[in-house]
């Protein structure tokens, strides 16, 4: 076995030049698609995630509708060309799990009870994957929902933290995700002060877990600021 690569140097600088608490550059392009009711291209480092929302609209098949609220239908997919090695286009167990995890993270903010018997479709296409795609997906979905004019209790902001070279690090990149000791994606709703998605795999002490949670919330707050700016400026800026 080869020696494990050092991912954080003595000065606390990571392989991509960031400090341990820095996020990757984030770019938000609202209304990226012409036909969806709401859409966004969300870029975070090398992640390129396209989210689109349709509806609320009539439910087909009819028996899937609920009498007291709208149903959410979430599809998270990774493009075959989004990863180093080609991903088979067939849905993987990971994608099925993440579609559910993302739906659960959004259900409690969308005011579904206002539109009984309808469906809101949320499509998340990962065009290029570079770690943290599920939380970037929830971040993007919240933007697309707001862009579609779908009423919400708050905006979900996601970020992953992890443990790399024994340190708690914010917003892991691909190599840190693969070689690091732990990965903890979270989604936070700053205006409610609540968590709507929390997962962790890897190894952490309980002290490290506490530190990771507080760093994750700080990171999500930074993401939230960018989401708010994007939503406000899209409508203030008028392009001719």
């Amino acid at each position: 076995m080869s020696l494990k690569k050092q991912l954080i140097n003595e000065q606390g600088i990571r392989t991509d030049g960031r400090g341990i608490d820095d996020l990757r550059p984030i770019k938000i392009t609202l209304g990226y698609l012409a036909h969806a009711n709401g859409s966004v291209l969300y870029e975070q480092g090398k992640n390129k995630i396209l989210a689109a929302v349709f509806g609320p609209s009539e439910v087909h098949p009819k028996h899937a509708e609920l009498p007291d609220r709208a149903i959410l239908r979430v599809r998270y997919r990774m493009a075959p060309f989004s990863t180093e090695e080609r991903k088979s286009p067939a849905p993987t167990r990971r994608e099925i799990e993440l579609s559910m995890v993302i739906r659960n993270a959004l259900e409690s903010v969308v005011l579904t009870e206002l539109f009984p018997r309808t469906a809101i479709d949320i499509f998340i296409e990962v065009l290029q994957a570079d770690a943290g795609t599920r939380v970037a997906g929830v971040t993007a979905a919240a933007l697309a929902l707001a862009d579609a004019g779908i009423p919400m209790k708050g905006i979900t902001a996601g970020c992953a933290v992890g443990k790399v070279d024994g340190k708690i690090v914010c917003d892991l990149n691909d190599i840190e995700d693969k070689e690091g000791e732990a990965d903890m994606p979270i989604v936070y709703i700053p205006t409610l002060g609540k968590i709507s998605l929390l997962q962790m795999d890897g190894l952490m002490t309980q002290e490290e877990f506490k530190q990771a949670l507080s760093k994750a919330i700080n990171s999500a707050m930074k993401v939230y600021q960018l989401q708010v700016n994007a939503l406000k400026t899209k409508y203030i800026k008028v392009e001719r």
């Binding site: 707001a146 708050g154 709703i189 205006t191």
Partner: peptide, 13 residues
């Protein structure tokens, strides 16, 4: 071009 203040979902009014 100036605009009125815009709020986003979850913002306290």
């Amino acid at each position: 071009m100036s605009g009125k203040p815009i709020v986003v979902p979850g913002e306290i009014l």
